[in-house]
Simulated assay, not measured.
Amino acid sequence: MTIAITGATSGIGLETAKTLLEKGHKIIFLVRDMKKADDVLKDIPQSGNVTVIACDLADLSSVKEAAEALQESTDQLDVLINNAGGTFKERMESKDGYELHLAVNHLGHFLLVNNCLDYLKKQSTKVINVSSEAHRAAKLDFKDLNLKNNYSTIKAYANAKLYNILFTKSLVDIGLTSYALHPGVIDSGFGDNLNPLLKMFWFLGKPFMKNTRQGASTSIYLASNTLDASKNGAYFKDRKVVSCSKEANNKATRDRLWEESEGLVKDYLQH
């Protein structure tokens, strides 16, 4: 199979990519830092099966170019794993002026998929979105998607992870195979960007966290297996279907999110 993955140079993205390479698949790395990708590939025996495409999810023009390059890179894309994400201790904005959690965790992937939509449908590509149990803490306000009022890191991240699940279900609505997943709480560099109080809780929880290889297991499972059609659009944890929040299952909410997201990226959408 040929599998594309965002955020493939660190954390669970890298572990996902390495394991899938070991299984004999061809992997397309969609990465922000090309130099880092070159360094990472020096330590991967199967690097000959890797194609690298520049894709900065916080820069919509970069995402638009990456979508074009992805479609040109392979005649058959079996799986797209929207894995990249991040959390930021202060309110920051992307190059396009969007709150950074919204931009990196949702809008970049939304644009990438939309600009490849006909291609993905033609290839019957499976789209996997890495979400989080944090989605249950979301406080969604369509009047303030950019969180200019009452910003908090937890709310920004939780909202973005809710968007990942809503997006997954919308993709099923339009005819794709798509899954969302919680990888587990991972002992990685993720906690480095938290504020001091949250960082303390993160440190105290480290003994109970998964390592990156364990955290990648559900992404690998979903990428590697053909599941029953009844599981299309489902939310997975530890390779099993689990329930998501009531808001994540709300069709009116996901339709509104799609509409709002289209408006935010409209200047970069290919028609």
Rank of each mutant, 00 (worst) to 15 (best):
W258I: 06
T168V: 04
N193W: 06
T218P: 08
V172P: 01
A4T: 02
D238K: 13
L269I: 15
A180V: 05
Q46H: 09
H25K: 05
T153M: 07
G263W: 04
I186F: 12
T125W: 15
A156F: 05
A4W: 00
G175H: 11
E260P: 06
N225L: 07
N211R: 08
L112N: 03
R254W: 08
I128H: 00
R239Q: 14
V52T: 01
G189K: 09
A248V: 01
Q46D: 10
G11M: 07
E65L: 08
S170V: 10
G86T: 13
G48S: 14
V265H: 11
K237F: 14
K210Q: 04
I53L: 13
I28M: 12
T6R: 01
F208D: 01
L171P: 04
M92Y: 06
L198R: 01
N49E: 14
F203Q: 03
T212H: 07
Q123P: 00
A84D: 02
V242N: 07
K122L: 15
F167W: 06
L111N: 03
K231W: 13
N211H: 07
Y98L: 12
S230F: 11
D38R: 00
V40W: 01
S124Q: 15
L222M: 07
K251W: 04
S217D: 11
N49Q: 13
A103N: 08
K36V: 04
L20A: 06
E262G: 11
H271C: 11
A134C: 09
G97D: 00
F110W: 13
I186C: 10
K26V: 05
A134F: 03
W202P: 09
L181W: 02
L102H: 02
D141F: 08
S178E: 04
S61W: 00
T177C: 11
G108H: 03
L176M: 15
K148F: 10
R256E: 12
L117W: 15
G233P: 03
L21H: 06
A248H: 00
A17D: 05
Y221I: 15
N211T: 11
D141L: 15
K23S: 10
K231C: 15
E99T: 12
L227G: 12
Q214S: 14
L70N: 04
L204S: 04
F110T: 08
V265N: 06
D255N: 12
A216Y: 00
